[in-house]
Design a protein around this nucleic acid. Structure first.
Lengths: 91, 91
DNA sequence: CTCCTTTGCTACGTTTTTGGTAGCAACTTG
DNA sequence: CAAGTTGCTACCAAAAACGTAGCAAAGGAG
């Protein structure tokens, strides 16, 4: 339930999503997220860091093992969303 | 990506979650979601209805087929969150 | 060293979203 | 009829997000 609360905040899911393929710097991550305001980005990063989902490493922010596991748990969502998009387009 | 935007709004995931076991009335759904304000709940319901994830039926709000599919896609997240909670507790 | 760039990040004022309470109109029940 | 329940809107206060500017630190180039 706490997970739903954490992930149900704006940009949380998106940030994790953007980091799925590897580390990104603060600024790169910002651009990837449609230019979120640094205030919010920093806030989310703090929360996600506290939740041990990501950490600040050598080459920017990157997912922890737990974070990558979450990414894997989110894969079905990816597949679902594609089917969903198709249906919406057709009406 | 639109999916992340829709689901990354406050209460969206929670609402879908609460409906996973069957229909709930507006007021019951409100209580289930820690007493969200009706303003927000109604807004989310409108969005989710437009996204064809739920609909207002005989015995309250209930998931559509697509909504239930999303619920299934979210199952791994459930399993993950339990492991995650355990780890956080242990430090 | 100085100059320039890039980094992570904070300040701050505006806009948007959410929260909370009250309550209405429609419907059922007795 | 009165009394209860339903979905939902109005209203205002609080919180969150946005957007822009800019700072301090770190690195490289000349």
């Amino acid at each position: 339930m706490a997970a739903l609360d954490l992930l149900g905040r704006r940009w949380s899911l998106r940030i994790l999503w953007e980091l799925r393929e590897g580390p990104l710097t603060f600024r790169a991550l910002r651009e990837a997220c449609d230019g979120v305001s640094p205030t919010v980005l920093n806030g989310r990063l703090a929360e996600l860091r506290e939740a041990a989902l990501l950490e600040s490493g050598e080459s920017g922010y990157e997912l922890t093992r737990t974070g990558r596991e979450l990414g894997r748990a989110l894969r079905p969502l990816d597949a679902w969303s594609e089917r969903w998009a198709e249906r919406l387009e057709r009406g």
